[in-house]
């Protein structure tokens, strides 16, 4: 919002053309058209009706929007859908197979690694990414490498325990 009496008779900048984007989301090819300013997060939520991925800040400050793009965990709020044309995206909706939960999803339930559940899709996608990276092993390392996912309910110790369970380093 701009203060002061700026030129208000000028026409606003025109909107560009919509662009076609193809993503493979949770194993299914999805084609849609969006304006270039649509983030991957908003594309998933508003255009593909995959609302499991959450918006918590829209600025890469909370991790709630974490998804896996080509196997890597990223903040979907800070990338444009058009930039990801052709990518493989995995969201929280794509982790269970034929109704069987991913081991990390089950571990989150077992260890009560959430309360309100809003950061949970991002935490789980982040945890899947962490496990795939194969770097973080000790509790110190898991804490550090999960620090991009804020949980305001404060479930952190349970999140660490859930990841350890899924990694097979803790029952």
């Amino acid at each position: 919002m701009q203060d002061g009496a700026a030129q208000s008779d000028a026409n606003p900048a025109p909107l560009p053309e919509k662009m076609s984007v193809t993503l493979t989301v949770n194993g299914t090819e999805r084609r849609f058209s969006v304006l270039p300013w649509v983030s991957l997060l908003d594309a998933l939520r508003d255009h593909l009706d995959l609302t499991g991925t959450k918006k918590g800040c829209d600025h890469g400050q909370c991790g709630a929007c974490t998804v896996l793009v080509d196997g890597r965990r990223i903040n979907s709020c800070l990338t444009l859908a058009v930039m990801r044309d052709g990518a493989h995206v995995t969201t929280i909706e794509g982790l269970a197979t034929n109704g069987a939960l991913d081991p990390l999803q089950q571990a989150f339930i077992d260890h009560d690694a959430f309360q309100c559940g809003y950061c949970t899709p991002g935490q789980i996608c982040s945890g899947i990414g962490l496990i795939a990276e194969g770097r973080a092993k000790s509790p110190h390392e898991i804490r550090e490498f999960m620090s991009g996912n804020i949980c305001r309910c404060g479930a952190y110790p349970n999140i660490v325990a859930a990841i350890q369970q899924a990694m097979g380093t803790k029952p």
Binding site: T91, I92, F108, I109, P121
Partner: peptide
């Protein structure tokens, strides 16, 4: 729990 870990 299941609803919350699956995005449902």
């Amino acid at each position: 729990g299941r609803a919350k870990v699956t995005g449902a």
